[in-house]
Design a protein around this nucleic acid. Structure first.
Lengths: 329, 329
DNA sequence: TTCTCCTTTGCAAACGTTTCCGTTGTATTA
DNA sequence: TAATACAACGGAAACGTTTGCAAAGGAGAA
């Protein structure tokens, strides 16, 4: 015998289910005396309304799915926290899922979230294939992309200006006198592509030719450190390393220590995100802030608007990154 | 008109709902031909089964609630990640909630999770009041406490040996020659109490008297840095600071920088948890590893056992902490 | 032919809500 | 007294599934 139901409450009170429901929800006409009695019995029985039944009836679950690559990445942890802060004020719950940078797991996760009939979805898409987005559009689920965008698709998204990040990184390192820069990029997502593009454009503008071997990509199931070592072992001697994100930068810093290289005297390191950790690394890490706090909250706000208004015009928010200069460069 | 339902599939196939259901779930006898037709139509319609209806019928939602203080704390992010890794293999989803160290929000969150009819619950309890645990027991929800325990209550939990942590911290710092040690503890949870107890016992065993002013507690809505400053401004001159967790230690390190104090020459810092960041802080942080990776996974395993077997004996897992000596002490 | 058995299918109840609509009972007004 | 109005409540359908039970139909055996 499971938890108490509305029927139990009604039976004990000697009223109908309908009346009990009205009493508990304070809707419709119901005698104050009866209402008090129903509330008392519900309390005594430890009655907890069943959201499944409510959701089946109303078509609303008050749940939003949040699908990121992994919550272990503090960037996403912060984004999720921002989302949660805003959504919980509106009575929404968060169903968390991870893609681990794997398109198949992503698609499967989305399917499962739809089975749970989430009211909306926040997605940090794995790759720029529009398949997932099409799927979501077809199923008419309100959703917002966060952190990463998908090119040539008209959707809601909140991102940081990736091209500008690449540009800022190049300009900063060039200004510091670097020419032999190793770019350890992510792979398979549009952000990575845009940052690379902004980076290469700016390098070219300054007359610096970048050969392919100076651009490396971290794929799923690879560690950034392994990639660094491979590059060094191939004879590359960079004076600076531009990392796709702080998460990677931190790994690179460890790797450089292991190889006995000093930062920034032997080699400079530049990250992206401005995670809390970068302030206290050794040395404190120069990085480009991607406004992840604001990103999560903005995302939630847009999702709320879409879920409630079903507004038809898409919201595209591009936050402006900010260089935080510390001593690693 | 919402998403396609089983009725739609059945109607188009010209079969009954029952048959369609059996075909899709591969249960019961159904003609291979019919089955193929049903699958085809379902695919074409983009049919997504409704978990709400399924859950209402079966009493199982395949959702577990996870309630931590905040996902921004990398300790919990790692624990949640471990939980997710194990549970997702068994088809469970995670409904994430945050208490922000507030007992009322915690109770409210638990109530909401029960409304969603989670199959089980993982809880990092805010304070040692047994109210929440009693509530959960009364509602017969399978649950496991993680990271923190509640004294004198017979429940499943996975924690690290807190008293031993306090003891190890004291012994380590004493061995390094410290006598004037500031302990910046957490407050309101049993872990904090146990660590303090282990710490004080060990100090006493070494003949060191610890006055009250050398023990400080970080309460909700207070920053560790503010507490540090207050202590210093009151004239305390510690040679070492023992922090409840790395999260706090990191803040303390920042605070010490601001005050121009050098680590470890002026003052030593000791944290707890062994978060990834501690390896690359300046200086790398000495810390006590609380096995958070294993903690999450172990928690999930126990919860699975409780949810499926309804085993009656409680599992109490106490992981052994491990001192990681780096250069901050 | 008739009986039995087996495969395939459909009907309907059940899960726990919410709300529309109709019914009852009482008080107010003409 | 009779008509009306309104407050309070109950019945029942609906949301989308799953499954026990029974019925239909055909094949094989006596």
């Amino acid at each position: 015998m499971g938890p108490a139901t509305l029927k139990d409450v009604a039976r004990i009170c000697g009223v109908s289910i309908a009346t009990a429901s009205r009493a508990l929800n304070d809707k419709g006409e119901v005698n104050p005396e009866t209402r008090k009695r129903v509330l008392a019995v519900a309390e005594e029985l430890g009655y907890v309304p069943n959201s499944l039944a409510k959701g089946l009836w109303s078509g609303k679950t008050k749940i939003v799915g949040v699908l990121v690559t992994t919550i272990e990445n503090p960037f996403y942890a912060n984004v999720v926290s921002g989302i949660e802060r805003v959504l919980s004020d509106y009575g929404y719950n968060i169903l968390l899922s991870s893609s681990h940078e794997d398109p198949e797991r992503e698609m499967e996760a989305v399917r499962v979230l739809l089975e749970q009939r989430v009211d909306g979805l926040v997605l940090a898409p794995v790759q720029s294939s529009p398949a997932v987005v099409e799927f979501l559009n077809k199923n008419r689920v309100p959703f917002v992309l966060v952190g990463r965008n998908i090119p040539d698709v008209d959707t809601n998204f909140v991102v940081c200006d990736d091209q500008l990040i690449g540009q800022m990184a190049a300009e900063h390192l060039i200004k510091k006198g670097h020419r032999k820069i190793l770019f350890i990029n992510s792979s398979g997502n549009h952000s990575a592509r845009l940052r690379l593009q902004g980076y290469l454009n700016t390098m070219k503008k300054h007359g610096i030719n970048v050969e392919d071997q100076w651009i490396r990509e971290v794929r799923a199931n690879e560690t950034a450190k392994a990639i660094l070592f491979k590059a060094l072992d191939q004879g590359l001697e960079p004076t600076a390393i531009f990392c796709f994100c702080d998460h990677i930068a931190v790994e690179i810093v460890r790797g450089l220590y292991e190889r006995g290289l000093k930062i920034p005297s032997d080699i400079a390191v530049l990250g992206v995100d401005n995670l809390g950790v970068t302030e206290i690394t050794n040395p404190p890490l120069t990085t480009i802030d991607t406004q992840h706090n604001e990103m999560g909250m903005k995302t939630a706000e847009i999702l709320l608007k879409v879920m409630e208004n079903r507004s038809l015009d898409t919201s595209k928010v591009v936050l402006t990154p900010k260089l935080i200069e510390r001593s690693s460069s």
